[in-house]
Simulated scan of single mutants.
Amino acid sequence: MRLLTFRMGADTRWGLSTADGVLDIAAAQEELNGDARPFTPSCDRLAELSELLERAKGHEDLFFDEADLQLGPCLPVANKIICIGLNYRRHAREANMAEPKAPILFAKYNNCLASAHDNINLPTTRYQYDYESELAVVIGKQVKRVSPEEALDCVFGYCVANDLSERELQMSAGQWTIGKMLDGFLPVGPYLVTADEVGDPQNLGIRCWVNGELRQDSNTSDMIFSVAELISYISCYATLEPGDIIVTGTPEGVILGMENKVWLKPGDEVVVEIDKLGRLSNRMTTTDN
């Protein structure tokens, strides 16, 4: 299944993308099941969601044309956003850094979440703006100290992410989070694709274009620590819960690794695409703040 969110006035609503259009999940739950619970991306609601879709067939009032919708982030609110640094072998080499012996973790926050088509503001007080195409993992079960062999069972789904960064802040402050936590600096979407449709997360092509120029062209098989290993490692120290996001690292081809660094600027368009998950396209802009 392919989930998304869409904006309706001041509300952000969950939808299910189908061949018949986008099913308004909240409206369908209330009309067909008398259920007013908010939808959450938890594994125990997948069967319920499939049944809801079957019951909604023929109820045209519950579906929207996706082209008419203003999409939101495919996960509008996260419990935790845990990001991984230097997790692709060739990216570590381009950064002239040794492959890490354990995953490098840093944080982003809900203010970073943006949609697949939002404009992203670049404050004019900084200029070393960079892109990072990444596979994002959305957790669907509460887990603690899960083994790598069982870790993928707790995944609700996957989505495309762009871990935008301001490199001067990231590198000069002695820690990474300050250069990563700017407003809108984690576009995700357009879809949250359930794990059963994705299959092996370690065999997905991942690409990034800037103004039509291909900058990153890799595969998740180049990860140093697999998705399962990341989930297992993190869960040793923090309980993972439905709605947590793990952003798994970027492949080679970022501006930071280039000899001639031309940083992102207002007007640039960054497109990120991952096999089976779709693509997000964001225009860089500025409001002089």
Rank of each mutant, 00 (worst) to 15 (best):
P73N: 08
G21W: 11
D24F: 04
L264S: 06
D183W: 10
D65W: 01
I82A: 13
G189A: 11
T12G: 01
C159T: 14
G21M: 11
D24E: 04
G212V: 09
D153S: 15
D183C: 09
I82F: 00
A195C: 10
L240K: 07
A238P: 01
I25L: 09
W14S: 04
T124D: 15
N33S: 05
G243D: 08
T250M: 13
K108P: 01
M223G: 02
I234N: 14
D153C: 00
D118Q: 11
D11H: 14
S281Y: 07
G9P: 13
G253C: 03
A102E: 09
E134G: 03
S42G: 06
W14M: 06
E269W: 05
D20Q: 14
E150R: 15
D222N: 14
H117S: 15
Q142T: 15
V155L: 09
F225G: 04
E60V: 12
V137M: 12
C83Q: 12
M171L: 08
Y109G: 00
P41D: 08
V138A: 15
K141S: 13
I25R: 01
G157C: 14
E166I: 05
V193N: 04
I255Y: 06
D61L: 04
V227K: 11
I178C: 07
R93Y: 10
N79K: 14
I246F: 12
A151Q: 07
E94V: 06
L214R: 11
M171F: 03
L122P: 15
W263M: 00
M1W: 04
M171Q: 13
G189F: 09
S221E: 14
S281L: 06
M8D: 13
P201Q: 00
I246R: 11
P76C: 10
L192Y: 09
A161S: 14
E197Q: 11
L52C: 02
E134C: 05
N119L: 07
V270W: 08
E31M: 14
K265M: 10
G249N: 12
A173E: 00
C208Q: 08
E150M: 14
R207H: 04
W263I: 01
I178L: 15
A67I: 04
P190T: 03
D200Y: 04
V77A: 07
P187G: 04
C43L: 15
W263V: 07
A195N: 12
G257P: 06
D61P: 00
N33G: 02
C236K: 12
F106I: 01
D20H: 13
E94R: 05
A238K: 10
N219F: 05
K144L: 10
M1Q: 13
